[in-house]
């Protein structure tokens, strides 16, 4: 509830995903690079070579450090790689949204929010 105060500045969508997902979302126009010199991107392309630490760092950066991001989109199979981080993340801002990727169809069973939904309904 305390985070409600800062929601006004959040106007970007960040994405952590595989190349195709990121390309598509960037095409939609969500990409934003802050002006030099620090030029921070609001997207991260993850491939087989990206290690989990880098994903976690990006996740951390998008969720805690940056105050201008309202929604973090993350491919489900990438969320799986840092599942414990995603599951323990409970803040309302920014919202974490798990999205399917091209090669990994969506599995509702893994989604941390949907699992909470299910638990609440006692299913």
């Amino acid at each position: 509830m305390a985070s409600q105060a800062d929601y006004k500045d959040r106007q970007f969508i960040a994405v952590i995903g595989d190349e195709d997902s990121v390309t598509g979302l960037l095409l939609a126009g969500i990409g934003h690079v802050t002006p030099a010199p620090d030029s921070q991107k609001n997207f991260l392309v993850v491939d087989a070579k990206t290690d989990n630490a880098a994903i976690e760092a990006a996740f951390e950066r998008f969720t805690t450090e940056r105050k201008d991001i309202g929604i973090v989109l993350i491919n489900q199979h990438i969320a799986d790689r840092i599942r414990y981080r995603v599951d323990t993340y409970t803040a309302a801002f920014p919202t974490i949204l798990e999205i399917p990727s091209k090669d990994h169809p969506y599995d509702p069973e893994k989604d941390s929010v949907l699992r909470r939904v299910r638990r609440l309904f006692g299913e």
Binding site: F12, E19, L26, L27, A28, G29, I30, G31, H32, F43
Partner: peptide
Amino acid sequence: GYQIQESAKSARFRI
């Protein structure tokens, strides 16, 4: 993909 990533500058789609 690469070209898109590099040419992204300012978000057109905001919330």
